[in-house]
Every structure is written in C-alpha cells, then in structure tokens.
Design a protein around this nucleic acid. Structure first.
Lengths: 340, 340
DNA sequence: CTGAAAGCGCTAACAA
DNA sequence: TTGTTAGCGCTTTCAG
C-alpha cells in the first residue's frame, strides 16, 4: 500500500499532524494519552517516520560513510562489522564507499558521492584523503575520522595503534630471541602505517647496532609480498633468520611462499612476525606471532571521536594512538637457547 | 559555509531555481547555454544536489540495504565488495544492516530500520526473512532479492548456485576416486543452502548404494565444525576416508583440527571437499578442493533482478539457480589408483 | 526552453 | 500540551 504518512496517522487518530510528529520525535512534549492514541493508529497503519524527510529539516541523515579500500584483508570486514554494530546502538548506519586508493580523480568522485548523501560523518578506513579533499569535507561541514591511518597534516582526527612502537617491540623481541639477520617486508610506503612500522623496525635495529638484512615494500598486497619473499631468498649472501612483515594479510602469503615455494620450515629456518592479529592469525594453519592492534578500543575511540565531532563542532583534531601488544605464537623461536 | 542550495546557484547564475534543478536532472530539457551557465556557477560554489531532498520527491533514495549475518566468512565481504562496485555503476550505494540470524524480534527491528531509510531495495545475503517480514516489505513496496539463500515459499526472488547439484557433483567425485566412507559436516540445517547441500550428498550416496558414514550439523560455525570433526574421529567403527563440508569457512576449521588435533594427513588419511571457493581456499596452506560458487554471475544476476524489480514492478518472482563447478585441488586424492 | 508555483513528508517555531 | 503555519532543498507540472 505505498507510503503511509504522518498525515494519514493524524487523520486516523483524529489529531493534528504535528502531534504525530511529536510522538515520534525524541524529547518532544506530548501527553501520555496523546502518545497512546497516536501509537495505536500508527501501529494499525504500520506507519514509520520517513528518515529522509526528517533529515531535510534536522540536517542530520543518521548515515555515516565508511570509506574503505579493499575488503580482502580480514582486518577490514572485521572492523566494518564492529563499527556497524557500535553505530547501530547510536542510531546510525553505515553507507559503504569503496575507494581503491586510486587516482585523485577517483577520490574526488567518492567525496562527491558522499556529500550527495548528506552523510553525518565519515570514517576513512585505510584510505588517505588528500588535503584538498579533506578541506572540501570541512567546507561542507562533514566531520572525518581517520581509522588505522594518520595524516601528516594534523588537521584531521585519527585513531591508530602506535605502529612505530608496535614494530619496535616486535623487532626487539626477534633480537632478544637471538635473531640477527632481520628482513622487513614493509607495508606500503605511501601510507602512514607502512612508514611507521618500517621506522620502528629500523629504529630497534639501529639501537642494537645492526643493519637491516633487507627492506622491501610489499604494498600491503599478497602478490607483491610473494615477490618480495622470493627476492629475499634469492640473495647469495645467506638467508635471513627472521622476517618482520608489515601486516598479517601479507604475512600469510609470505608464509605460504616460504613453506611451499622455498620448502623451508617456520620457525626452524626462519621466524616470522606479522602485524594486526586478524582472526586468521590464530588459526592453527598459520598460528602467527604478531602485533595485536587493539581493535575494540580503536573502534570505540573512533565512534566516540566521531560523535564528539558531530555534536559539538568545537573539538579540535586529536590523533589518538593506542598501545598494541605482541602476541607470541608459533612462527617465532628462541635461537638463544638453541646455542646454549 | 554549510549548505549551498540550488537557489544559491540560481541567483549566482541569474536564472531560475528550476533551471538549476534541470541541469542536474538526468533527461531534463535544458539548452546548452543554460547548462553551461549553471554548471559554471555551481562549480564556483562547489554545489552538489541534495540526494535526500530529491528522494522526497522522486520516491527513490538510491540506497540499497544489504542485510547480512556475519562478515567472518570470507564469502560475504567478497560479495559485499563486488555488490558495492556493481551498484555504484548504477548510481546506488549500500547501507549495511547486520542481522545475526537471531530472534524474530531482532529481525523485525532490522526491517523497521531499513524501512525508515526508504531504501530502494533489499539484498538479503545469507539471512532468511520470515514470511511476515517479507510481507511487510512488500506492503511498503520495497523489492527484495535473496542472495545465496532461498525461501521455501516462492514469493521471493532469489539467486543461488545449484547447491543440490554442486554437492552431488562433489560427492560423486569422491566416490569416483575410490572413497567409500563419506561423512558430511553440513551447513546449518535451518538454511536452504545447508539442507540442499546435505540432500545432494545423500542423493549421490544413495544412487551408489551407500550409507553416509555420518552427517553432523556444523551450523556454518567454526567451533561447531571443530566439535563435529572430533566427534567424527572418536567413533570406534573405523575412520571416514572423506569428508564433505558444508562450506569453506567451516572447512578451514575442520582441516586445522584434522591436521593439528588428530595429527592426520590430508589427503593421505582423509580427503576433504568444501563449498564456495573463497579466495582463501586457493592459498597453499589449504589448497582446498571445493565447489566453486559462480560469485560474479551471482552478483550480476542479483543486481539485474533487483533493478528489474525496482523499475518495473511487474516482474514476478524468479528463483535463479546457477551452475557451480568442482575445483579439484590438493585436499583430495585418487584412492582407486593407489589400489592398482 | 524557461520561470513560477505547488508540494514531497517532515520538524520547529509560534500562538492558543 | 496542542494545533497552525512556515519552510527544509528539491522535482515537476503548468503557463508562457
């Protein structure tokens, strides 16, 4: 029966249309009797207020744009699911925008689209908005939270784990357990996470007085990571005894390549450490030693930050960095003991 | 700077507000000169039409609701990504609704929410809408496509692969390669896919004159699948020589359990076949023999079906079943040859 | 082709 | 507390 409007309900209940509006508006003043009458009529007609019409007036759509690159790295569907649940609690829903880290022009289009939908806020997961695009959103008054990515320019709020420290911890652990020829297959060097994790790696080595065995950009991509692995093991100068990989998603490819291409054993021949601790990492097939990103806290902080931005525009940008934790599993071994 | 409206643009260009509307409305009649003038002013003001306001009139929000259970089975993020890209081409975007196959009441709420947003259509992936809820959507005139799920009642359109045939093929392959003690860890028996795949399994066995070694409901859940595996291997009556598992997601758990709990080899001790062919299945760590769901065709048909429903309400419900294909990889072996 | 005017379904003053 | 009224930003008749 097509659309039932508030007017239909009003007529049926024998009250004014505004009375209907009020009973469905949080915090409006309606008497109990009125509310009851209206609710009854509404139920009978199966009436629901039209959010879009409401948005037009209130200026709030209750839609949050989630901008995300690919969904093949399990970290992101996991985050999407958790973000969606948390936002639902607050009466928001997620409109998905896929942005494949492509050209500025593509990004431009995505921003256009999400402005069109009058979204109340943006969660940019894994993608980096250029300065000009960020400014456009600011002009349009759409708050942005960066999730798992930071901007050099501190005008944008962001939530990440401390990638530098996490990578440093992981590397120090490898050093403490007797590894000396450490390679790094890094996250994409065009991303903050990629660079910061690489920096943590080299910093730990430097402090220890060691040179990296090698650093290759894996670009957060399975194929690139496999290439990198092959390159690493084709060196004539002896093999690495440990590889720190920029994220778990690449790690799985690296491990597969080491085991099934190279025919080497993990961790006996080479130790592996990842970053993220996605669910797959704890599955026995990989059982990966990795730096856990505190995803629940990250989600929580992202939502809180976004809500703050939406409700009082006063808040100034904050770049939150949460502590990660090294989870030791089966892809690393203590080479110190072995020598004793 | 808040919102720039069509009126602002109109004033700046020195034309009427309707002229602005027309230049931004597909298929409206405007002269080239007028369009140019308007576009110029619009660009200068960084104007974009407000989709929500437009929706109010046209009755189309360009929002599609994707209702999905969990995102931990890689099949769904993959589908989400592909659906999103395909819909974007057509000018639609996906609003995510997580429905954890819970109570009727929860489902009720989800339907409420998606009606609120005036979505143009619903893609129900993996969740089954009860009859009454489906009817409510029909009353509200919101078309529904079931994705990877069928309804007994044929009033809803759906796209699936032929689960019965796929399962039958898989089982026949196991029989043809000399397996005789076939167990099935099934998909959730409350779902059409779970039931149809189980039916394909038993049908193939029956034709061959064999009894199933055992059938246990794994409920599309990792933990349940592991439990089922343990149960299977605790039987006193000899072990199964092959297991057909209801989907790949459970399969990974089953394989891990067999290898790392039981200490058995795949496929030497037991062959394994899955269903779906998610990306992970082709990774060397699992290298899974499985029935491929033709996901691209499924996506394509789902979108086409939905668009048909949206544009001409005339179309009557169609339950499309696409052909799946057995992909033979490393988790099965030919036991016939061995005996020769 | 263009402008004026009506109205989509709703909320938010404003009176009563 | 309630009803009346004026828009939110847009599309779509309807005249011209």
């Amino acid at each position: 029966m097509g659309k039932v409007t508030s007017l239909d309900v009003a007529r049926k209940a024998g009250v004014s249309q505004s009375a209907v509006s009020r009973t469905f508006t949080e915090g409006a003043s309606v008497s109990v009797g009125m509310a009851k009458k209206v609710r009854k009529a509404a139920d009978e007609l199966d009436y629901r207020p039209n959010i879009l019409a409401r948005s037009l007036i209130t200026g709030r759509s209750r839609i949050i744009a989630l901008v995300v690159g690919y969904l093949d790295n399990q970290f992101y569907p996991d985050a999407l699911e958790k973000l969606s649940r948390a936002l639902k609690e607050k009466g928001y829903h997620i409109l998905v925008f896929l942005a494949s880290n492509e050209s500025e022009q593509e990004a431009q289009k995505v921003v256009d689209e999400l402005i069109d939908y009058q979204v109340d806020g943006i969660i940019a997961a894994s993608v980096s908005l250029s300065h000009s695009l960020a400014k456009r959103c600011k002009t349009q008054n759409i708050p942005i939270m960066l999730f798992n990515r930071r901007q050099d320019n501190p005008s944008l709020s962001s939530v990440t784990s401390n990638n530098f420290l996490g990578a440093k911890k992981a590397t120090e652990y490898l050093l403490a357990t007797g590894h000396r020829k450490l390679a790094h297959i890094s996250g994409w060097s065009e991303t903050s996470t990629g660079r910061e994790r690489a920096a943590g790696f080299t910093c730990a080595l430097e402090k220890f007085g060691l040179e990296p065995y090698d650093i290759i950009d894996g670009m957060y991509n399975r194929e690139k990571a496999i290439e990198a692995t092959r390159k690493l093991f084709s060196k004539k100068t002896g093999l690495p005894d440990a590889i720190f990989v920029g994220n778990d998603h690449m790690c799985f490819a690296v491990m597969d390549s080491i085991r099934y291409d190279m025919g080497l054993r993990i961790p006996e021949d080479v130790s592996i450490v990842g970053f993220d601790d996605v669910p797959l990492s704890s599955w026995p097939a990989y059982n990966l030693t990795t730096v856990r990103q505190p995803i629940n806290k990250m989600i929580q902080s992202t939502i809180k930050g976004l809500m703050d931005l939406i409700h009082n525009d006063l808040t100034e940008p904050k770049q939150l960095q949460l502590e990660g934790k090294l989870i030791v599993r089966g892809t690393t071994t203590n080479r110190v003991k072995e020598k004793e």
